[in-house]
Design a protein around this nucleic acid. Structure first.
Lengths: 192, 192
DNA sequence: TATTTTTCTTCACTTAAGTTAACGTTTAAT
DNA sequence: ATTAAACGTTAACTTAAGTGAAGAAAAATA
């Protein structure tokens, strides 16, 4: 697990032994069971998550219905809005599968930034990349129909279709489960 | 204009005279005319933009049709994906109004980060905030109907409704101009 | 000012998603 | 192993967005 993390970081910046050890010494690896809720709507939290293995989902509950808005899988991270703005969370975060997560707090991060400014560079670079990626994802969502969004998901994140229940996929695509079933049937019909 | 920028920055970090002068000495203020295209689809660029005054729009042209995906107004910045990934741009960026923009390049930023590490902290913090804000915007888009999205826009960015043509607003909301007209008529009908 | 172009709205019609309900299947719990 | 709950699909019906066309209003241009 340590190595997965180091390899990921080394794609972006170089680390000396000292810095590698600093990471290794952080006791931040956590094994979380499927279904466990990491963050609840209305709750305060100062935890950020980085997925080393497994899958994490964020969702709202609106009029009793779950609205899934994001999935985070291997080498993806989330810092919930409530951590950044210091206000109660508007959404839930839970584990879709048994997962290994890296859990951090702003205090820990600030400490690392103090000791190793390089880590702040890393976080800046990763954040900037993420801003740009998110914008593209949002753009593609806007300019696509539900059917196109589904086909795009099958193309870009085929693993998700397998590892996540369909009604969560539907919600993630901004439609109802019944519509997703219909879309899938329509696609099969077309390809005949 | 200098002061607008400094005041914005001072919300997040403290600057000494030296640092303030460093910013002032950057010759990065540009006056851009309405309609001017800053970035074209297919083009390479290394320019990032920060809006001091005015309004900038990003859009795709798909099958001859403009698809507006974002508006950037006072104190908002864009670093186009093509700058970050060093590949041709998938979208256009143009000025909706006469605007005053701050234009930067990665080289300039890296130089500033070298001289004043504090600026890198600032950029990290701003990027992290932006990631979180973007995620919330995307979430709200997904969990809302077109009508709700429109009402939300009227509530959250009423200025946009005024300063931007309706067909661009429609596209931004993920619908056709005709549908936006209908939605507006429906809302008026309801409130009678 | 006159003229062209862009923008916005309305309408009739088509298409696709939402809704409600039912049913078989898979998964989890006892 | 049995039961209950959650999940996925199908169907009939409703609602709302897309489409194509036309015309009025506003803005840009000559």
């Amino acid at each position: 697990m340590q190595n997965l993390l180091l390899d990921f970081i080394l794609q972006y910046i170089h680390l000396d032994e000292n810095e590698k050890n600093a990471i290794a010494s952080l006791d931040i690896f956590h094994t979380i069971k499927k279904g466990h809720i990491l963050l609840k709507q209305g709750e305060f939290s100062n935890q950020g998550y980085f997925v080393l293995k497994g899958c994490v989902r964020s969702f709202y509950i609106i009029e009793g219905e779950e609205k899934t808005t994001a999935f985070y899988t291997e080498m993806e991270g989330i810092t919930p809005q409530c951590v950044i703005d210091n206000k109660p969370s508007e959404y839930y975060i839970s584990c879709v599968e048994d997962s290994i997560l890296l859990i951090s707090t702003p205090d820990m991060e600030d400490e690392m930034f103090q000791k190793f400014p390089k880590f702040e560079s890393l976080c800046r670079i990763l954040s900037e990349k993420l801003v740009s990626k998110q914008q593209i994802d949002f753009d593609n969502f806007k300019i696509s129909s539900p059917e196109e969004r589904y086909l795009n998901l099958v193309d870009k994140r085929p693993d998700l279709i397998q590892r996540v229940p369909q009604h969560q996929i539907a919600s993630f695509l901004g439609i109802k489960p019944q519509s997703l079933s219909r879309i899938k049937a329509r696609i099969i019909e077309k390809n005949k």
